[in-house]
């Protein structure tokens, strides 16, 4: 994303924080993992554009 300094990888363009192939419980866990990664990124000291690329 242009100009963003803290970037977290989502799942897919069509559902960045979800995965319709998973059952609802697992899908919510996936979403939570991505959001928690984003919260980690907000707490990280960043000097330049950084990708927080946790496996999902």
């Amino acid at each position: 994303m242009v100009g963003s300094n803290r970037i977290v990888r989502g799942n897919k363009i069509v559902n960045p924080l979800g995965n319709a192939d998973l059952d609802p419980q697992n899908e919510k866990e996936l979403r939570r993992a991505i959001v928690e990664n984003a919260l980690e990124a907000l707490q990280a000291d960043v000097k330049e554009q950084t990708l927080f690329d946790q496996p999902i």
């Binding site: 924080l17 319709a20 939570r32 959001v35």
Partner: peptide, 18 residues
């Protein structure tokens, strides 16, 4: 997929849990 479940784009459900 987002119309099926808007939380897949704007994750309100997980944010409320947190």
């Amino acid at each position: 997929f987002v119309r099926q479940d808007p939380n897949r784009l704007v994750p309100v459900d997980v944010m409320r849990d947190l």
